[in-house]
Design a protein around this nucleic acid. Structure first.
Lengths: 137, 137
DNA sequence: ATGGGTGCAAAGTGTTTGCAACCGT
DNA sequence: ACGGTTGCAAACACTTTGCACCCAT
């Protein structure tokens, strides 16, 4: 039950938070902007303001429920944190976001930070790509 | 001579563009925001508007003279493109930007994109780091 | 009941743009 | 002289905030 997830992270169980969490869980594609969520709320005749969407997303991020990414293009995108760290590829033509992981890149990153006397707090790796000519979909 | 660099990329040699290019060349740290540049212009009693700084930086980017990065924190940072591709580490405490390169990470990135049927158009790898406890400066 | 949560509108930030004057060629 | 370039102010897009009311506990 979603209300448990909210309580678990110390957030009061309110209607806006439940609805937004619900949308994030069902979201496909998984990466959505605040406006995307707001639009869906409107479609479902929910009377929730855009400001609330931003506030709730910020709280969810602080609570570790969602991840926020700043890809190119101004709008931040959010996704539910499912616990499996991954990086992103953004298809420049379709806007589609593809997730990927690479143990090896992770390892190299830590090695590099270490070499400079640093510890990685967080990182952001985004590949902006285009379909290869002749590649199948 | 800087005026040559401008002509080479097809930009009219104007006072604002010369001054901004000059600041970028002398900049240390090399990564500066539009405001940083604007501030320096003001200090040197130059009568150049912030809008012009943005316009010129955009043109420089399009001309391949500068690179623009969107690190966390809203403000975009610019650096003169010296031709040597590199990625960035941002010290979360000092704001300092450290450059690094990793042939291996580059290779892995292309391998991953390839595996998904894509070609990398550009990419962004930023490590947000903190000094390791006890690490020398 | 009480303190956090919410909607709305207004304020903020960083960046872009319209326009008349200006300057490099 | 011409057309690109500039400064200024206003417009923009996205996000945050102040405030009076509302609702979960």
């Amino acid at each position: 039950m979603e209300s448990q997830e909210l309580r678990k992270v110390g957030l009061k169980v309110t209607h806006p938070r439940m609805r937004i969490l619900d949308i994030l869980e069902r979201a496909s594609p998984r990466h959505v902007t605040a406006e995307d969520i707001y639009r869906q709320l409107i479609e479902h005749d929910e009377d929730i303001g855009l400001a609330t969407v931003y506030r709730v997303l910020t709280q969810f991020e602080a609570a570790g429920l969602v991840l926020k990414h700043n890809f190119e293009g101004g709008q931040a995108v959010f996704e539910l944190d499912r616990g499996h760290h991954h990086d992103h590829m953004v298809d420049l033509d379709s806007g589609k976001v593809i997730e990927f992981t690479s143990e090896e890149i992770e390892r190299l990153q830590h090695e590099i930070a270490e070499r400079h006397g640093y510890v990685i707090e967080e990182h952001s790796l985004v590949l902006y790509v285009r379909r290869k000519r002749g590649a199948a979909s």
